[in-house]
C-alpha cells in the first residue's frame, strides 16, 4: 500500500503527455454539459434565492427590495402550510400504495405465467398517456351525477368536490398512474436476484410467503430504497393532477392544492415572483430534508449484497 501511494505521488510531480491529454479532453467532453448546467440550474438557483428578498412592484415596476418580508409572510401564510400538508397527504397515499401494489404485481409477473407480456404492457400503459388526458378521464369517471363510478356502485359520492374525499380521490389517480412504473423497476431488480437462493430455500422446504420475506425482500431492498427516494421526490412535486382535476371554483381546492400548484399560481398567474420563489425554496428544503433522513435510515433496512 505504502509503495503504491509513493508511486502516485511521484507521478503527480510531472504530468505525463497522457495525463495532459486526459485533462484536456476531460474538460472538452464535460464543457457543454457543465456550461448548460451552470446557465440552466446553478445560476437560476442563486437567482431564485436572491429573488426571495424582492417583491414585484405594482404596475410592473421592476423589483422592490423587501428584505425578509416574503419569509415573514410565508411563515404566517396558512394557505402555504395547508398546501404543504396537502402535498404530504397526497404523497402518503401515492408512495406506499404504488410501491406495495407495484411490488406484488412484479413478484407475480416474475414467474412463468400465461399472459406475462400482456399484463406487463397493460400495467405500464398509464406511463405513456398524457397526464392531461389521464386527469380528464378520471374527472369524468368521478363525476358525481354522470360518472361511471357512482353509477356502477349506485352511490352519490362527491369524489372530487368534497374536501374530505377529494385528496383520497386524487391520490388514487396518482397510484394508478405510477403503479406500472414502479412495477417495471421492481421486475428489473427481481431479475438480478440469483436463482440459487430460491433453490436452496426450496430444498429446505420454504413456502412462497417465507421466500418473499426472507429472500426476495432483503435482496430487493436496494431497488425498493431507490424507488422510494425517487417516488417521494416526485410525489412532493405533484402539479399536473391537481391543476387538471381541480377547477378554480372547486370547493375542495384549498384542501387539495399542492405546493407546486401554489408556486405556479403565485409566480405565473399572480406574477409575484418573489413570493413564488420563496414557496419553491420551501419545497426544495423539504425535499432535501426528507431525502437526507431516508439516506440516514437506509442503513437500518437496506441490504447490500
Amino acid at each position: 500500500m505504502a509503495g503504491k501511494s509513493g508511486v502516485t505521488k511521484a507521478k503527480k510531480h510531472k504530468m505525463t503527455k497522457w495525463d495532459k491529454s486526459q485533462a484536456l479532453w476531460g474538460w472538452i467532453f464535460i464543457l457543454p454539459t457543465m456550461a448548460g448546467l451552470i446557465i440552466l440550474n446553478i445560476w437560476p438557483l442563486i437567482q431564485s434565492v436572491y429573488q426571495t428578498f424582492f417583491r414585484t412592484g405594482d404596475f410592473g415596476k421592476g423589483n422592490v427590495f423587501v428584505g425578509l418580508e416574503n419569509y415573514q409572510q410565508l411563515f404566517q401564510d396558512t394557505e402555504v402550510w395547508q398546501a404543504l400538508w396537502n402535498t404530504f397527504k397526497y404523497s402518503l397515499i401515492e408512495v406506499p400504495f404504488s410501491i406495495i401494489l407495484g411490488l406484488i404485481l412484479a413478484v407475480l409477473l416474475n414467474k412463468k405465467i400465461a399472459g406475462r407480456t400482456f399484463y406487463r404492457a397493460v400495467f405500464f400503459l398509464p406511463m405513456v398517456a398524457a397526464p392531461a388526458a389521464v386527469a380528464m378521464v378520471w374527472r369524468w369517471l368521478y363525476n358525481t351525477k354522470f360518472g361511471l363510478i357512482n353509477n356502477i356502485f349506485h352511490t352519490n359520492i362527491e369524489w372530487i368536490s368534497n374536501p374530505s374525499t377529494a385528496w383520497i380521490s386524487i391520490g388514487v389517480i396518482g397510484v394508478w398512474s405510477v403503479l406500472g412504473y414502479n412495477m417495471i423497476l421492481f421486475l428489473a431488480g427481481l431479475q438480478e436476484i440469483p436463482y440459487d437462493y430460491y433453490e436452496a430455500a426450496q430444498v429446505d422446504g420454504a413456502n412462497g410467503v417465507y421466500e418473499f420475506f426472507k429472500i426476495t425482500l432483503p435482496l430487493l431492498s436496494p431497488t425498493v430504497f431507490f424507488v422510494m427516494v425517487t417516488r417521494i421526490i416526485g410525489a412532493l412535486q405533484v402539479f399536473d393532477l391537481i391543476y387538471m382535476v381541480m377547477d378554480k371554483s372547486n370547493p375542495a381546492l384549498p384542501k387539495t392544492q399542492s405546493i407546486v400548484y401554489l408556486f405556479y399560481q403565485y409566480s405565473f398567474v399572480n406574477h409575484n415572483k418573489g413570493y413564488g420563489s420563496a414557496i419553491a425554496l420551501l419545497l426544495v428544503i423539504c425535499v432535501l430534508i426528507i431525502t437526507a433522513i431516508q439516506m440516514k435510515l437506509q442503513k437500518k433496512w437496506v441490504f447490500y449484497y
Partner: peptide, 17 residues
C-alpha cells in the same frame, strides 16, 4: 454539481429560466 441538481426539485429553476 451534477449530483446536486439531481436532488433539487426543478421548480426552483423555473422562474429564472
Amino acid at each position: 454539481l451534477v449530483l446536486i441538481q439531481m436532488m433539487i426539485p426543478s421548480q426552483i429553476f423555473t422562474i429564472p429560466q
